[in-house]
């Protein structure tokens, strides 16, 4: 089976005036289907930058990326947006739910926006996903009436709405208390195990990394260690 993610020689240099900062210096990273990988590193090690590059939110200075066998570095902005919508899922530290929409509408949003509206099948899938993340009794609640943990669970359901091949999570438990963080981690493990969804989780939390199937540590813009 081909790799879900195959990144080769990823380099990223930021320019600040005359000063150049090499954040990534040639990272190679491959993810197999169904993996739950923790991307670790100290602040400034380049893990968020690598996640943004893999998520097609940032273009690398050098290197190649293939997602599910498809090379993506030559895609236009519109094609990258479409690719993100159809093939990738995102979970961020801050959920950024749409406050004027219900939990179901928030989950369905990634599918509804390009289609021009929420269809009955979309609504059904969104409700199934909400049931899956344990929010059967909150489906029609406005996002503003959900707790922090519930909002992050809605964000996970939203990331899974379009059945992505790769889910990218940036500090997904960073803004949650210990109990809510445990629930979110359990949920991601469950989805990973049962749906064979591939996760790349960027974190600086050892406790989160310990729950993953593989740990990749970045140091000074390069992969320092990989532990299975």
């Amino acid at each position: 089976m081909s790799a879900v993610l195959e990144a080769r020689g990823i380099a990223m240099t930021f320019r600040n005036g005359d000063e150049l900062t090499n954040v990534l210096k040639g990272v190679d990273l491959a993810l197999e289907p169904g993996e739950l990988v923790a991307l670790l590193g100290a602040s400034g090690s380049g893990k968020s930058t690598l996640l943004s590059i893999v998520g097609l939110l940032l273009r690398p200075t050098a290197g190649t990326i293939a997602i599910a066998g498809e090379r993506v570095e030559g895609l236009s902005e519109v094609e990258r947006a479409s690719f993100r919508n159809q093939r990738l899922g995102f979970i961020f530290q801050f959920h950024h739910l749409l406050p004027d929409f219900t939990a179901t509408e928030n989950v369905a949003f990634p599918a509804a926006a390009p289609a021009g509206g929420i269809t009955a099948p979309m609504r059904r899938r969104a409700r199934d996903l909400l049931a899956r993340v344990g929010l059967s009794d909150r489906m029609d609640f406005p996002a503003t009436r959900l707790s922090g943990g519930q909002k992050q669970r809605v964000a996970i359901a939203r990331a899974l709405m379009n059945k992505p091949e790769l889910v990218l999570a940036d500090e997904p438990t960073g803004s949650l208390d210990r109990v809510a963080a445990e629930q979110v981690l359990d949920l991601m493990r469950e989805v990973n195990r049962e749906d064979k969804a591939t996760f790349l989780i960027c974190t600086h939390d050892e406790h989160v990394a310990a729950r993953c199937t593989r740990r990749v540590t970045l140091k000074d813009g390069l992969i320092d260690t990989e532990v299975v």
């Binding site: 998520g55 947006a81 690719f83 993100r84 919508n85 995102f90 950024h96 949003f109 926006a113 390009p114």
Partner: peptide, 16 residues
Amino acid sequence: RGEIGIMRAFGVSRRF
């Protein structure tokens, strides 16, 4: 900005 950013992240078009 946050909502718009997340919409853009999960691929909602600029036109939308």
